[in-house]
Design a binder for these strands. Sequence first.
RNA 1: GGGCGGUUAGCUCAGUUGGUUAGAGCGCCUGCCUUACAAGCAGGAAGUCCGGGGUUCGAGUCCCUGACCGCCCACCA
Length: 931
Amino acid sequence: MPHDLPKAYDPTAIEDRWAEYWVRENLFAQPTPTAPIENQGPAAQAFTILLPPPNVTGRLHMGHMLNQTEMDILTRWRRMSGRRALWVPGTDHAGIATQMMVERQLATEGTSRQQLGREPFVERVWEWKRHYGGAILDQMKRLGASVDWQREYFTMDDHLSVAVREAFVRLHEQGLIYRGAYIVNWCPRCQTAISDLEVVYDEHKGHLWEIRYPVVDANGKDTGEFLTVATTRPETMLGDVAVAIHPEDERYLHLHGKKLHLPLVGREIPVILDEWVSRDFGTGAVKVTPAHDPNDFAIGERHHLPSINVMDDTGHINAEGGAYAGLDRYVARKKIVADLEEQGLLAAIKDYTNNVGHCDRCKTVVEPRLSTQWFIKIQPLADKAIAAVKPDANGEKAIRFTPEQYEKTYLNWMENIHDWCISRQLWWGHRIPAWHCSTCHKITVARVDPTACAHCGSAQIMQETDVLDTWFSSGLLPVSVFGWPNIAAENRGDFDAFYPTSLLVTGFDILFFWVARMIMLGCWFAGDVPLPDGSPRSLADSVPFREVYIHALVRDANREKMSKTKGNVLDPIEIVKQYGTDAVRFTLASMASPGTDIAFNVARTEGYRAFANKIWNAARFLFMNVDRAAEIGILVDPAALGKMPVVAEDAPLEERWIVAELHSTAAKVNQSLENYRYDDAANTIYQFFWGSFCDWYLEIVKLRLDFEETADKAATKAALTTLVAVFEAALRLLSPFMPFLTEEIWHAVYDGNPPAKSIALTRYPQAAEVTANEATLAAMSVVQSVIVEVRALRKEIGVEEKAVTPIEVRMNAGLKSVVKSSSAIVERLARATEVRFTDQITAGLSKRSTPDFDVAVVYERTIDVPAERERLTRDIAKYEKGLAAAERQLGNEAFLAKAPAQVVEGLKKQESETRLLLENARAALSSLPEH
RNA sequence: GGGCGGUUAGCUCAGUUGGUUAGAGCGCCUGCCUUACAAGCAGGAAGUCCGGGGUUCGAGUCCCUGACCGCCCACCA
């Protein structure tokens, strides 16, 4: 049997197969266009999207899955809408993270990176990458991401490294890269500088130590007076070069110009005046340690003080620390405090809570420390990056953020940006293309490895050992993946077709790390690439992406942030195994309301697995009927499928209705996706499939699926055709959300002979104008409410589920003709033997009233009088309240004068309807038998 | 210290520019194995829209204010 689907939906039985098929068949490959895209009409316009490259060390988590689900939905939708869709995958070399991973591995082998040496270590990391680096992308394949695997990149690939080098050299040529000794955040564990962004602050309950510095006279003798300073890091006193007081602080002004005796060290240091000092914090006197604090460094600059670095790369006190040399910074702290106390120089220890910076990667407490690093002078790049996001003179924004609020966050950061420290003292990464000359000590920066110093010609040159911040290379991706900097006439096809990319979908956690850097670097470098016709490129065409969609955080069911330490991390692969990828994707989509975090609840996923099962069974029902029809020679013409179904004006109500619903569903879904309302789109489809298609249409269509010899074959065929056509279109509508299920069923619909290799390559349903939609929807709505009222009434008066009865209906002539022509539907769905139209419901029957009609079930009622009394009383109260509110409004002249006519009319109608319902309910209550 | 977001049914969330009597899923209650589906069908209960004030004919929606929760940035030793 060709249409034979297993009885129950089992995602594990289908998903792996299709995931593999999509990759094997290269279905989503997007080759370089051979002709300019502008010449191919707007339909072929590219939709380009870059996958935020996961770290090679990464394991897929819910955040990735949300991110990928959103991108995949949009990419599949755009592709099916005829756009030249390209989604580029890749991975990031993730400098520190990967180096750490391999270092840890080496440690278990009893060795270390230092013992191995630089080159063998780097080779070892490559080996690790080749072995484990693809794991996360393999997981991604399993999730059905419709990316172009042929374009998969790694940020250290040769062609991307060329871009990194070119970018560095060019910035250097432009005078935007400099090297110097500044205070940077130093991680003693990673033994590298890290940028401000890589420092995370944690509240820490510590102390404020107050230390007495003896005041000495001109001969260096103690005067007996002290100046007391306060510090949270006493060990840095070893590097103190001054004590600063506020210029107007009369407590200490007399000490200005005097010298202090630096305890434990013996150095004499000056008392200086600086506005920066806050008189009410601590003691009002600040020890100045330019080599270990950014503010102190600034004071040092202002007062031309020396900087004394007292710590080495590992956070141990160095030779400058005299007796404390070699001690770990915290051991030194303890000892220093003890020694001070012993000497009577410790004035106080106060409890103090402050924010302590930790290394984002390894959580080690960061040490602000003077060191020589490479920086980018960022302001010129930031200026462009600001202009790209702010509205221009015409109010147009080159880059649009969704949700809009992130635009403000972004601008706020960009407008207060500091120079970017791009050097890292790591071994894994892009090595800085700079050579130090040991003869003239100048630096040579070059595109091609130099053999001699560019300044003095000496061959005694050594390449810089630092590598670049990982984000430097990933910040270049939008240009580099499409071939920059090699944009020559014959090989600029990718760049012209796909740059700027259309959209970036990512989390706010990398807004500054990555999004901001891409905007700066993209605008800067793409701006120099002329358009294909040779004309200069505007800022709007230089941006790396035209839109940014920032998604929410996936939390656990209790809204807690998922974290390993809390143990509440949900492994998407585990949940996928349990419920199927489609159900998990649908869960994420249906909850992905912009700007709101997602509290991931598997109960929801369970519900969507049920939804998938529902569709599965609808398919089985369909195929069962198609097969039965085939037996008597009724075949659905495949030409009727694959498009938006339309029906004849004289088609049965349910056919006209379901087609109208399909069109309006398609319209809503397209609109929602346009606005990144994945939740609305998903809910709309859910509602259509389950509510309209299954609950109503399928039940009604059963009336028409008559395969007896006596059947009207043409009518049966028409019904069957609409059924299959609507279902097939609905599958396409659902396909971006549930690609596996829809692929499986879609192939079955075509019975092994599909018009394309995949449903993903068919056209997305687009709504067309459907005549008489309104009338059709209204007619169906009356039929539905008659059925619903009868069902409720039957329940209320205790009609057995299986029993069938006549019903009485009182309604106006117009509605009567509608319901009359659909009486078979009412009879079937309301379990009526007969629909009796009447001008007056037979006395004694329980009836239900709506503004449009009264309906009653002809049945000897076994009514639960108290329950009925309660219900009616409740209804009456509700109606009375509604009526009073309406009357109050309508009695308000200001309302009548100012509210739009439409609103007033609506209220009047509501008032009269409510009055009617109220009267009916009162009558029903009084007709209840006394108790 | 600066900025931002949130508070709507038991739970998780929608609610477009103010407009008639506030919605969904899950959960809950009742009755049904009605041959596509019990992962189902049908019916039902359930909300002082965080508090207070204001604007308006009309406020869940706009303004002010307070409370609570959360996030980002800055980093005064």
